[in-house]
Amino acid sequence: MPQQVNLSGSNSTDSDPSVFFLNGIPGLEAMHLWISVPFCSVFTVALLGNCTLLYVIKTEPSLQQPMFYFLAMLAVIDLVLSTTTMPKTLSIFWFNSREISFTACLVQMFFLHSFSIMESAVLLAMAFDRYVAICNPLRYTTILTNSVIAKIGLVALARAILLMVPLPFLLRTLPFCRSHVIAHCYCEHMAVVNLACANTRFNNIYGIIVTLSIVGLDLIFIALSYVKILRTVLSLASKEEQLKAFGTCVSHLCAILVVYTPVVLSSIVHRFGHQVAAHIHILLANFYLLFPPMMNPIVYGVKTKQIRDRVRLLFHRKCF
């Protein structure tokens, strides 16, 4: 039997919380052990898939190209997103280990949101990579040099850190004199803000502005890149050339759908699904964190011949 946690501290009147309690999936506590099976399976696939992807990109000379450097960045981000949340979530499901310190909660929140922002930036960089490869193929190697790729990565990291650094400091100024129980599997920003017994309008506005400015602007620039790519592809003489050019974008388009579809679904349900049960909101939020890290290496492994061949050779050596 899981060890029962004393939640008496959750109703403390102390405005300086040292401990919070993660509630897992509200309403489905009795099914936590069963729910952990798909969660653990997806987490394991995500870890194996992204680690394999990184190994293949590092060891295969033909993959030492800008597109695969960006893919390696995406794999690292997916690993961080998975390992930031899932170990604690599984400990809730398996051991009823709900307690988390306020500092650990803020650290988890910082990594979760900052690396989500970085993921969006890398998808934008990958769209730019496809734009240059199709619209300016002769200048591809001179535009996307290793130096430029490193700078893009550093800018993505700096943007994420600068936007997320204020969050922990803003939350530390809030008094938490009501419940310390977070109705979630992890420390999501708004789930923690909702526990504060003070005016949180600034936190809410800041969160909305960051979300709209990052996701909105990145999606607009990605869309613009693909408008230009589509024009270039349609101007090619033969159908074979068109299919070959557009085929190089299929993996990236799948990655965009894999990442942004759960975000859009979760946002729609959160904003308009007031009649939707709380556990649906939480399951969708977890789906958003689990699905992309699992699917990205699978999509690129299936769609990219160099990766597919290298993985097949790797497992062939292991087996024989």
Rank of each mutant, 00 (worst) to 15 (best):
K58H: 10
F95R: 05
Y55E: 08
L33G: 06
L138M: 13
F102A: 12
F20E: 03
T83M: 09
F21Q: 01
L48R: 01
A158V: 06
V250M: 13
I268K: 00
L174R: 06
T59I: 11
G207P: 02
V56I: 14
L144N: 07
K305V: 11
L171M: 13
L167N: 12
I256E: 08
H180M: 03
K151Q: 14
T13G: 15
L170K: 06
G216M: 04
L123V: 00
M164D: 13
L106N: 04
T103M: 14
T141E: 14
Y186E: 08
F246K: 01
G273Y: 05
L313G: 02
Y69W: 14
T211S: 15
L313A: 15
S120L: 04
L63E: 08
L195N: 04
L253V: 13
Q306I: 15
V80N: 07
S147V: 05
S97N: 02
I35H: 10
D78N: 14
N23H: 09
P66R: 02
Y186S: 13
M295K: 07
K151H: 12
C135D: 02
S267G: 08
Q64V: 00
I92N: 02
H252S: 01
V5P: 06
R178F: 09
T52R: 09
S101H: 05
L79Y: 06
